[in-house]
């Protein structure tokens, strides 16, 4: 067995050698981040006047760009489809996939990618018309449910209705647009997909207030960011940017108050803002003030959530599982120390 003293020596030697740094170096040399997003998902990625993208996934990429370049605009957004998103990562066409993708075993192990963290904890829900007498999924007995064909949505529904011994009629359609149209045409009592998707689609209806999402969530859909596997430094940069968004939220450091907190005595706040003795950014190829840049230029996780999908946004989603762990949700990050 290797002697302990020798092992510790190796530890010290390895500690000062940076991990393979290909992707981060490429991004820095290029001068901007290439971020894969979904097309026009309300609250997550939508394009506004002047071709300005906004949304939860857009803001994650802006935070990553802020940490690297001190400039949240140093991002090129690239549309990725459900089919080409993994290949876009592994070919290097995009640096990071922020398009919300459910983290599953097959995707994590067979696509050549690694998941960074769950930007949004979602689950499958049901949208119904208000006043139609459906207060819970139990009320959908013998009713039709519209879903997109060949998706896990259909399998989850099969499991749920069978387990709860509720009869129902699944009606499936090739595309999401056809599924929604069928629901709006009254062909189904309910439309089922991820709850965030339901809220997003509802916000595009002529009269969103006429529709309500039932309380039951029948699956877990952690919508997560991904990178190509094989570059530990890049994975950790992407992961600690996500953690910094959460840690800032937990410490009450916001885009508004971040400059006032520069004089804080709180040691956790000082470490977050790069004001403690120890430098956490440089060892992963960033700067000492990497997390300050994120909060100053983009905000913390709660601010990003509220701005894009929160109760006062058109999506009107309550935080639910996406509240911080100390506020009843499950969003949690290890500390910067």
């Amino acid at each position: 067995m290797f002697g302990r003293a020798a092992a510790v020596l190796v530890l010290l030697l390895l500690s000062v050698v940076p991990a393979s740094a290909a992707r981060l170096d490429d991004v820095k040399t290029r001068g901007f981040l290439q971020c894969g997003i979904g097309a026009g998902t309300p609250g997550f990625a939508t394009i506004g006047p002047g071709d300005a993208w906004s949304g939860l996934e857009v803001d994650y990429c802006r935070a990553l760009a802020a940490a690297i370049f001190n400039d949240p605009q140093a991002v090129h957004f690239i549309l990725s489809t459900t089919e080409d998103r993994w290949q876009s990562l592994t070919s290097g066409a995009i640096d990071v996939l922020a398009r919300p993708s459910t983290w599953t075993m097959e995707r994590d192990t067979a696509m050549g990618v690694s998941f960074v963290g769950t930007l949004f904890y979602d689950g499958q829900g049901f949208l119904v018309k208000k006043g139609a007498g459906y207060a819970s999924v139990n009320d959908l007995e013998n009713q039709s449910v519209c879903m997109q064909a060949n998706t896990t949505t259909v399998l989850n529904a099969e499991d749920f209705f069978a387990t709860n011994k509720i009869g129902y009629h699944p009606l499936t359609f090739a595309s999401r647009a056809e599924t929604i149209q069928a629901f709006l045409d009254g062909k189904c009592a309910a439309y089922s997909t991820n709850a965030a998707g339901l809220a997003g689609d509802r916000s595009t209806f002529a009269t969103p207030a006429d529709y309500v999402i039932l309380p039951e969530i029948i699956s877990k859909e952690p919508l997560a960011v991904a990178v190509a596997q094989g570059d530990d430094q890049w994975l950790k940069v992407a992961r600690w940017v996500y953690f910094a968004l959460l840690d800032a939220d937990e410490l009450g450091v916001t885009q508004k108050n971040v400059d006032e907190l520069v004089g804080s005595d709180n040691s956790e706040v000082k470490r977050l803002l790069g004001l403690a003795d120890e430098d956490f950014g440089t060892p992963i190829g960033l700067t000492k003030d990497w997390a300050y840049r994120i909060v100053k230029l983009v905000g913390n996780y709660g601010e990003i959530f509220d701005r894009n999908v929160g109760p006062n946004s058109p999506l009107a989603l309550s935080p639910g599982l996406n509240a911080l762990w100390k506020d009843g949700g499950i969003q949690y990050a290890p500390p910067i120390r």
Binding site: E83, S101, T102, M105, N194, G197, K220, L223, I330
Partner: peptide, 24 residues
């Protein structure tokens, strides 16, 4: 406590052992 499953008020959570199919 915090080590209960997420659906029972804790923080223990895991992605699912499943495919991705064509949905998000």
């Amino acid at each position: 406590g915090q080590n209960a499953l997420w659906k029972n008020g804790g923080l223990i959570y895991a992605p699912s052992i499943e495919a991705g199919d064509t949905g998000d």
